[in-house]
Amino acid sequence: MLKSCLKNLGNPYEIIAIAPVFNQYTEALKPVFGDLPFSVAEENLQSRIRGAMVMALSNKFGSVLLNTSNKSELATGYGTLYGDMAGGLGVLGDLYKMQIYALARHLNRNQELIPEHILTKAPSAELRPGQKDSDSLPDYAVLDEILYQYIERRQGPDELEAMGYEAKLVARILGLVNRAEFKRAQFCPIIRVSPKAFGMGRRMPIVGKYLG
């Protein structure tokens, strides 16, 4: 699937296994981790190994690593610092998930560049068997609407609830956004296409008692 996409776009690629490095890390950590079950620590470790490898390639060949985290992920903190959040420039960081799907459909208007299966499969970080984004986040179609109203339109909880959104859902999403500011503060520059791109377009206190 990914190979087909890369071939369609004419992008060269290399496949580098991370399992040997991951196994060495987990073996080194075993005396401290003990018999604790597999958790987000091991999930993020996989992402950080990938991040270190692609940064090494960037250093070795003098390239800029383009980060592909989207605005929905950055807003909610659904990303791994020093892992999939690594990079020198965020090319999709000002586009919500549903906007990226729309952009992909536009790119496919004359011929299939992005394989259909990529657009129809359930989004996943693929850090554990059967993992789906929906395990951790609301459906993107709903999430993006609330994020847009909160970030671009600067609508607060009362206004969002008046629009018909459930109070519990609003509190959950806004809480995710506010708690993730420390991650965004360490993120690379983003190509801005909206009035409220993260970074210079929207700065909030990293430590603050506001909206959860």
Rank of each mutant, 00 (worst) to 15 (best):
V177D: 08
G175R: 12
F182A: 12
R179Y: 04
I190G: 00
G164R: 08
R179L: 05
A162G: 07
G156F: 01
R179N: 04
P189C: 01
R184W: 02
L176T: 11
K183V: 01
I190H: 00
Q186S: 12
A185H: 07
L169D: 14
C188L: 05
F182G: 06
E161G: 06
I191L: 07
Y165M: 06
A162Q: 15
V177K: 01
P189D: 02
M163N: 09
I191G: 00
N178P: 08
A171K: 10
A167T: 15
P157W: 07
Q155I: 00
V177P: 09
R179F: 07
P157R: 02
R172V: 04
R192L: 01
M163C: 12
I191Q: 02
R172M: 13
R172I: 07
I173P: 04
Q186N: 03
R192Q: 02
L160E: 08
R154P: 00
L160D: 00
A162P: 10
L160Q: 03
A180R: 02
L169G: 03
L169A: 14
K168P: 10
K183P: 02
E161L: 01
R192H: 04
N178V: 09
A180Q: 05
M163F: 13
Q155P: 00
L169R: 15
L160Y: 00
E159R: 08
K183S: 08
V177M: 13
G164M: 13
I190L: 00
G175K: 11
L176I: 07
R192C: 01
E181Q: 05
R172Q: 14
G164D: 11
L174M: 12
C188K: 03
Y165P: 06
E181P: 02
E166K: 15
